[in-house]
Design a protein around this nucleic acid. Structure first.
Lengths: 236, 236
DNA sequence: CGTTCTTTTGACCGGCGTCAATATAGGTGG
DNA sequence: CCACCTATATTGACGCCGGTCAAAAGAACG
């Protein structure tokens, strides 16, 4: 959150104090289940998590893969029960924030709260892109899009990652994220490999031809980096 | 926004002042185009609008049908250009709010700002449900879901609406919202009619068998009405 | 009262799901 | 360290849902 804005010492102090509490979650453990009562949101500090909903026929739609820095369970601001399930994919650490704290945060550090809202907007934009992808693109495009998305987000956490990365998702998970079956995900990965857009070995994926992969993914570059420069520094 | 919370006189006054500015939009006119620069968000005061994105093959994904009370273009909080296009489906009136005003609103009336954030959460939940619908349900279910959604949202604005309503959407628009072709939307409407779940005449749709229609739509009742009771009334 | 948009229906096809069989890998207890 | 066991990956055969193409009938609108 600090990277988006030049924080004043007071803002930074508040943020640091907020970040003191920590809760760790074991691999595979559920932080929050659909319809659970909830009154706090979380910031993912480390690890990987995902959110999903279950339909009554038992099928699962994965909503988002979560990386450090992401906000979790923000629905708590408007609802008392969670619309989604949150699960840790690896050992993870989150920082809980009670929603009542947001009120004082708004008052004392409005820029911090609005930064939080801005991050929500980024997630919203990501949801929009996923929606368009599910509604309007082919299986091949959706699978390619997941690969690029994961690669980009891993890179943000570790700039050393270039074109090769460990995709720690099962094909079933990719399917549940893209609205496909695991079998068909496998077929699509195969065609991407046969066409030399990617290479695979073990759990590792290497992007061989990024321009083509982007084209295959129907990648819309919305040239939108977050912009919070409109927020003036606080008076004192 | 008033309905969600018991407002203090000061809060109400602020809200009223904010709502003074108005802009009307002619039927079919574009309020904001994808990638347009923007620095304000809007509240839809009257009329119907919709938001969509275009993919580079020309196909359109409708993101949301907008009704009075909905927030528009909230991405302006985090970005300087719009991720989506906003179009008026009927003669509409919106109230613009410059994003800078949100800072003072946060400070002086934190409950108002958080109510706005909570409304955003409701939209996010709606997006989640749409995502799960697109990824995991049949064409028939998606069309049924649109009918129920539109009916429910029209009813919120006019409680007189019971089971019969004017669906002012073309089948092409329903298709662009559900990720289907207009042709197939037509087929699904026909089967819903043949099965006596709905009746149609002119642009008017009548729900004949609501339980069955809900089942057909895979309707997940997340028993979640917005809950802002956690926000204490301001001290003075 | 033509012109264009929308709806409707039929014929046909292809992308993706389903089912099933096998291979491979990871993890666990002995 | 091995044997076993379950989760995951892979591939083929086949079928169906929904897309495509085309034609005609309404409906809306200037």
């Amino acid at each position: 959150m600090g990277g988006l804005l030049d924080l004043t010492p007071e803002e930074r102090a508040t943020l640091d104090r907020l970040g003191e509490r920590e809760r760790s979650i074991r691999r595979g453990a559920v932080l929050l289940r659909e319809n659970d009562r909830t009154s706090e949101l979380f910031v993912l500090l480390s690890g990987n998590m995902m959110s999903y909903v279950l339909l009554d026929d038992g099928s699962r739609q994965i909503l988002r893969f979560l990386f450090p820095g992401d906000l979790l369970a923000t629905a708590a601001i408007g609802y008392s029960s969670s619309p989604e399930t949150l699960v840790a994919q690896t050992e993870s650490v989150v920082c809980p924030i009670d929603r009542v704290e947001l009120l004082t945060m708004a008052q004392q550090h409005p820029r911090l709260l609005l930064t939080l809202v801005a991050i929500e907007q980024a997630e919203r934009t990501a949801l929009i892109d996923r929606l368009a992808g599910l509604g309007r693109t082919s299986a091949r495009a959706r699978v390619a899009a997941v690969l690029l998305d994961i690669r980009d987000r891993m890179r943000r956490g570790d700039p050393a990652i270039a074109n090769s990365f460990v995709l720690s998702l099962t094909q079933e998970e990719i399917g549940d994220a893209t609205g496909l079956t695991a079998v068909h995900v496998n077929r699509m990965l195969r065609t991407l490999e046969d066409d030399a857009l990617i290479a695979r070995s073990g759990g590792r994926v290497t992007v061989l031809n990024e321009p083509s992969l982007r084209r295959a993914a129907n990648y819309v570059d919305r040239q939108a980096t977050m912009d919070l420069s409109w927020m003036p520094a606080p008076a004192a």
